[in-house]
Simulated scan of single mutants.
Amino acid sequence: MSRTVEMHLRCLRVVVVRVGDRSFSFTAGESIHTESSRKYDFDRIDTLVLKAGRRLEHFWTDAKERFAEVGLRVMSR
């Protein structure tokens, strides 16, 4: 099973941001989409890893097993 998560920043007031020589204006209440990610259960991760020709090397998780980081290794041919 996978779940999609989107992260957004929402302006509480009018904001002008300068990046280099450019300016970007945001209105109060405007949303800025900052991230899209998919969340998978362990079985789905294992299947995706094998299909990609990788091997699950490490699986680190929090105490309640809600979040994980995985370490992969390319499988020898």
Rank of each mutant, 00 (worst) to 15 (best):
L50F: 15
S23G: 06
G53A: 04
D46W: 14
V49D: 04
A63K: 12
T61W: 02
R55A: 13
L48Y: 10
L48S: 08
A52P: 02
R38Y: 08
K51Y: 11
T61L: 02
R38C: 03
I45Q: 07
I45R: 05
H33F: 08
R18G: 08
T27C: 09
L50E: 12
S25W: 03
D41H: 05
F26N: 01
S36L: 05
H33M: 02
L50K: 14
D46T: 14
I32G: 01
G20A: 07
S37V: 02
S23R: 15
K51Q: 15
D21A: 12
D62W: 08
H33D: 05
E57L: 14
I32C: 00
V16S: 09
D46G: 05
S37F: 02
G20R: 06
V17E: 11
R22C: 09
K51R: 15
L48D: 06
D46L: 12
F59L: 13
D43K: 14
D46N: 12
F42P: 05
D46E: 11
G20S: 08
D21T: 13
S37M: 09
R22L: 10
D21I: 08
R44P: 01
D41I: 05
R55H: 04
R38K: 13
G53D: 06
F42M: 06
F24E: 11
Y40K: 00
E35Q: 12
A52Q: 11
R54A: 14
D46Q: 12
F42H: 08
G20E: 07
S37N: 00
D46H: 13
E30L: 00
A63Y: 03
T34C: 03
E57R: 14
T34R: 01
F26A: 00
R22G: 01
F26M: 03
R18V: 13
F42L: 13
R38P: 00
T34M: 02
Y40L: 08
L50D: 11
I32Q: 01
Y40P: 02
